[in-house]
Simulated scan of single mutants.
Amino acid sequence: MSSSRTQPGYRIASIPGDGIGPEVISAGITVLKKLATVLGSFNLQFNHFAWSSDYYKKHGHYIPDGGLEDLKKYDAIFFGAVGAPDVPDHISLWSLRLALVQPLQHYANVRPTRVLRGITPPLTSTAASPSNLDWVIIRENTEGEYAGQGGRTHIGKPWEVATEVAIFTRHGVERLMRFAFETARKRRRKKLCVVTKSNAQRSGLVLWDEVAKLVAQDFPDVEWDKMLVDAMTTRMVLHPETLDTIVATNLHADILSDLAASLAGSIGIAPTSNLDPTRANPSMFEPIHGSAFDLVGKGTANPVGTFWTAAEMLRWLGEEKAADWLMVCIENVTEKGVRTPDLGGVAETEEVTGALCEEIERVCSGKGGRGSGGRGREALEAGEY
Rank of each mutant, 00 (worst) to 15 (best):
S2Q: 10
Q7A: 11
Q7F: 03
Y10G: 12
I12E: 03
A13P: 14
G21Y: 13
S26F: 08
S26Y: 09
G28K: 07
T30N: 10
L35A: 03
T37I: 01
G40Y: 04
F42C: 13
F42N: 12
L44M: 04
A50Q: 08
S53E: 01
K58Q: 01
K58C: 02
G60Q: 06
P64I: 08
D65K: 09
D70S: 00
D75I: 11
I77D: 05
D89E: 07
L93V: 11
L100C: 15
L100H: 15
V101D: 13
H106I: 05
Y107T: 01
R111P: 02
L116P: 08
L116A: 06
P121D: 01
T126Y: 02
S131V: 07
L133V: 12
V136Y: 01
R139Q: 07
R139N: 10
R139A: 08
T142E: 10
G148E: 08
R152P: 14
T153M: 07
H154T: 03
V161W: 02
E164L: 06
E164T: 10
E164G: 07
I167E: 05
R185S: 15
K191M: 06
K191A: 10
Q201A: 11
W208E: 11
K213V: 01
V215R: 00
D221L: 05
W224D: 05
W224I: 11
K226E: 03
L228M: 03
A231N: 13
A231Y: 05
M232Q: 08
M236K: 08
P240A: 07
D244F: 03
D244I: 15
T245D: 07
N250M: 06
L251T: 08
L251S: 12
H252D: 11
A253Y: 06
A253M: 10
S257R: 05
S262A: 11
I269Y: 15
P271C: 13
S273L: 14
R279P: 15
F285M: 03
F293E: 15
G297M: 04
K298C: 10
A301N: 03
V304W: 00
W308G: 00
A310M: 05
M313T: 10
R315I: 11
R315H: 13
L317V: 10
L317R: 04
E319T: 06
K321F: 02
K321H: 02
A322M: 01
L326P: 15
V328Y: 07
V328T: 12
V333M: 12
E335K: 04
G345E: 04
T349Q: 05
T353R: 01
L356Y: 05
E359C: 12
I360L: 13
E361L: 03
R362T: 06
G368D: 05
G369Q: 06
R377A: 13
